[in-house]
Simulated scan of single mutants.
Amino acid sequence: MLIPLLLTFVLGLQESSGFGAGRWIGLGNYRQMASDDVFWRSLVNTLVFAGITVPASLALGLGLALLLNRPVRGRAAFRSLFYLPYVISGVVIGLTGDWMFNENIGVVNKILRVLGGDGVSWQSSPVPAFASVVAVIVWTHVGFCMVIYLAGLQGVPRERYEAASVDGAQGWQVLRHVTLPALRPTTFFLVVMMVITTFQVFDVVYVLTGGGPGNATQMLTTYAYSTGFGSRRQGYAAAIGVVMYLLVLAFTVVWWRAHKHQEAEA
């Protein structure tokens, strides 16, 4: 892993098509990013995408974990059902999303029309297209968050719940003062993992929307791919990859320090 990472940094300092030796241009690729509107649109899309999908996946995953942590009939089957999308190929997930959100033959639009509404332009309008990608990715990630939260819930000492019950705490009070504080390490892990995973999302977006319409769903990953293998500007694509790496690294460091500070105060 280290060698490709270092080679990516080196390639990001070159102008290269992938054929033959590259030409050293130093920070030229990074200077070009400053005036590249598509890069900035892709960066904003990626940040907004992460800002929506990560909290939504964690919240829904925690809700499912709380439900399935109880003695429910068929609990094992439900766990497997919710976790299944996370282990399926991203291309299959993208095709499934297209089957659901296709403007003409998609299941969602068919249901809307049966109910008397109009179909939504999932592929040709920016906001619906972005929403469809968010919905598919959240559906994919919820199962992983659920499994990790289940493991965290099963590690919470029963004595804490018994003490809270003696003090008269119920429902939301137990969740807020006992369960959520006990799950802080689990939440810290999940946030880091989900941010990294979200920044790496490629196949689902590529299959579902291709980054369109009009770069509305263009992510840093899809833009790096189209730049490196479509326009054959592999040096510039590598520089985009370096920016992605530094963003995720910076977030992880800041989040880790905030987590340590919270632990110290607690």
Rank of each mutant, 00 (worst) to 15 (best):
D167P: 06
I196L: 14
A163H: 09
G171C: 11
T179E: 00
D203M: 02
A169K: 09
A169I: 06
Y161R: 07
V204E: 07
T186M: 09
Q173C: 07
R184W: 12
T179K: 00
A182W: 00
Q200K: 15
V195C: 00
G168S: 10
P185D: 08
S165Q: 11
R184Y: 09
V192Y: 03
V201Q: 15
Q200G: 08
V174F: 00
V201L: 13
L183H: 02
F199N: 04
M194G: 04
L208W: 02
L208V: 07
F188Q: 10
L175Y: 12
A163C: 10
V195Y: 02
Y206K: 14
V204K: 03
Q170R: 15
V178A: 04
F202R: 04
F199C: 03
V201A: 15
H177M: 09
Q173E: 11
V205K: 01
V178D: 01
V166A: 13
R176N: 08
Y206M: 13
A182S: 15
V166I: 15
D203C: 04
L208D: 04
G171S: 05
D167A: 11
T179R: 00
T197G: 15
T198E: 03
R184G: 04
A164E: 06
Q173G: 08
W172T: 08
M193D: 12
I196R: 12
R160H: 15
R176V: 04
F202P: 05
Q170I: 11
I196G: 10
V174G: 00
V205D: 06
D167G: 07
V204F: 02
L175W: 13
A169Q: 07
V166P: 09
V195S: 02
Q173R: 14
F188G: 06
L175R: 09
T179I: 01
W172I: 11
L175S: 08
V207H: 05
T198V: 10
I196E: 10
T197W: 12
Y161S: 08
F188V: 10
V192K: 05
L190S: 00
L190A: 00
T197I: 06
E159V: 09
M194C: 12
H177F: 14
L175A: 12
P185M: 13
E159N: 09
F188S: 12
E162A: 13
V201C: 08
L208K: 04
M193K: 13
F202D: 03
I196A: 15
V174C: 02
T186I: 13
L180W: 11
V204T: 08
V195Q: 01
W172M: 11
T186Q: 05
D167N: 06
V192F: 02
F202Q: 05
Q200D: 14
T187Q: 14
L190K: 01
I196V: 12
T187A: 14
T187I: 06
T197M: 10
E159C: 06
V178L: 02
T187R: 05
L208S: 05
M194R: 13
A182G: 01
